[in-house]
Design a protein around this nucleic acid. Structure first.
Lengths: 347, 347
DNA sequence: CTGAAAGCGCTTACAG
DNA sequence: CTGAAAGCGCTTACAG
């Protein structure tokens, strides 16, 4: 029976070895580009391998080597904004490292989350990237108890957390956004926050408050509204602002999705941006530069954060030490065309 | 040395067995809920397992069983529209089946694609879902040559293709969209197609043509523009339409991202939707109902497609036969508020 | 330069 | 009900 006749099964290294007339040791060396094989032998083996489309068995290889070649990314929900930027960064470095990326969305369901946890513990991963709000990050402990390398992305944790984190200067971003509007002459600035049980939302709000206080602008609670970081709440809260006796002249939208919602509400009411209303976003998601008008926003280095997180994880996996353990990348203001001086101030 | 002292390493089944004083056979039976273990023994083993947070070694288990527990999803580019709907569907069924989802984006780079192919062949997957345009689907053959189950999503292939496909009635969707605009009284209807080297783009265009022909409306080549399915081209081509001596009164945007672009261009020019211009999209991506005005579009059952694809793949993996091999789900018109009769027609 | 052999951590007939 | 043993397909000291 020739090899061709067994096409219904994947070949094993032993079969290749037999076909060539060498040992599996030698075949293995060729496969792994190890020295210690004669040029002729190597060539012959290589030829047979290609002829038969032989590929190694991953499970066996990794049983021996004790790694899976897999990195898990856990995320709340795939949305196509913030998350996508991070994922692109991660994919980028994993492409080189040879790891494959397993993606799992918890959908904010704790049962699903526990299910995943069991599966990962039991199916083994080389390491995991946690793209979860600080509040859900307890699973990091479960992971660490099993000695699985883990890195959290997004939230700044207390310096005492045992696992490394990647975050960006959210508070400063909130401050800068608000400060920018103030510098344009706005005094009534609305903010649509994210869910206030998230520290990242509260950080933005705190930055907003600080900027107003420094400018000695009194804080008006009616100008502070909570959103869910989705487009729909951007629309809704903007309508609410417009219904106020004295509406704001500018809105800090909390994130870009909510800014997009604000755009749509204003469009519906025929209120021009930035002439009649200034809008500033947060995140600097891919499409912001293509909005019309292009959105002024706070840039979070999402791709960089993804890359850095992946690189740190890889280092952890390789058994190298990490320092510093908590990295915070900087946010920055990207001025485009959605903010201007308030109308009353214009000459 | 107690088990606790070895915390730096993951426990093996043998260690558990020794601790309890039974054989690994018995431990394995307990772990896999197999019969043939006394209630007391079972309880004792269970207890020790939990006490030590023991988890099985995935690689070893799957080396024995010959499966990886992994499903690969290959995609051109993570964008957050079409792709996300499919992924949600896939995730949904994999959650139950116990498989994990590996995501890989080729980024339209053939080198990257080949790299992935090598990696998958060599790292083994239980099956792969191809979310690629028909043109790139050649890798399905490479996969099948290695007896890896594969399902293609999106494009309808020739009935002769050896691998199963899931698609939706694109042509009909294009026809329906155009027909809807015609029925509202439009005669100058612009279309922004996707890249015309993709069969799915051409199918929409063909549907568009057919609808016009049936209505005996001459086809004006200046009203047919090629886009790249991204927001930016929606903006650009809409501007081009507006620059025409006789602009269209309605635009079939090819997909929802391009429709969003059209919205933005029209906003910039202060042209109201649907009063001064009707827009119809394609896909019915999550956010379309929240656009303002809510977008009339052609619904593709993305989540369903993802679910069905995953289910078919699972059946293939289980060695069951599949019939029919080519499934085509239906698209449908979702009327919202972005289309109206053309102005000149209004009373 | 080459190979025999042990072993990674499981599962599964098979025997008792 | 319980266990000894073979074997999944690799890699890696070690010996020749």
């Amino acid at each position: 029976m020739t090899l061709e006749q067994r096409q219904n099964k994947r070949l094993t290294m032993a079969q290749i070895a037999q076909e060539v007339g060498v040992s599996t040791t030698t075949v293995s060396k060729v496969l792994n580009q190890l020295p210690g094989v004669g040029a002729q032998t190597r060539a012959r083996i290589q030829q047979i391998i290609e002829q038969n489309d032989y590929v190694q068995n991953h499970a066996a290889r990794h049983l021996r080597k004790g790694q899976s070649g897999l990195i898990d990314l856990v995320i709340m929900r795939l949305e196509g904004g913030y998350d996508l930027g991070i994922m692109h960064g991660v994919q980028d470095v994993l492409e080189d490292s040879g790891h494959r990326l397993v993606v799992f969305a918890t959908n904010e369901d704790e049962t699903t989350e526990r299910l995943w946890l069991r599966r990962v513990l039991d199916q083994s991963t080389d390491g995991v990237l946690l793209l979860l709000p600080y509040e859900r990050i307890g699973i990091a402990n479960a992971l660490m108890a099993q000695h699985i390398p883990v890195i959290a992305i997004g939230d700044r944790n207390e310096p005492t957390t045992a696992f490394p984190t990647i975050s960006s200067t959210i508070w400063l971003g909130g401050y800068t956004a608000t400060e920018h509007l103030i510098s344009l002459g706005h005094r009534r600035i609305g903010i649509i926050t994210g869910p206030l049980h998230l520290t990242t939302s509260r950080a933005r709000l705190a930055g907003y408050r600080e900027a107003l206080e420094r400018a000695e602008i009194p804080i008006d609670p009616t100008l502070i509204r909570e959103g869910n970081y989705l487009l729909g709440d951007g629309i809704k809260q903007t309508y609410d602002f417009l219904g106020l006796p004295e509406p704001p002249t500018a809105i800090f939208a909390g994130n870009d999705a909510q800014a997009t919602g604000a755009y749509q509400a204003l469009y519906q009411r025929n209120i021009r941006i930035p002439d009649a209303m200034s809008i500033i976003g947060f995140d600097d998601v891919v499409y912001t530069s293509q909005m019309s008008p292009p959105l002024t926003t706070i840039h979070q280095p999402l791709v960089e954060m993804g890359k850095m997180a992946a690189n740190m994880l890889l280092r952890l996996i390789a058994g190298q030490s990490l320092e510093p353990n908590h990295v915070e990348l900087s946010t920055s203001l990207v001025v485009r065309q959605s903010c201007a001086a308030p109308r009353s101030r214009k000459l």
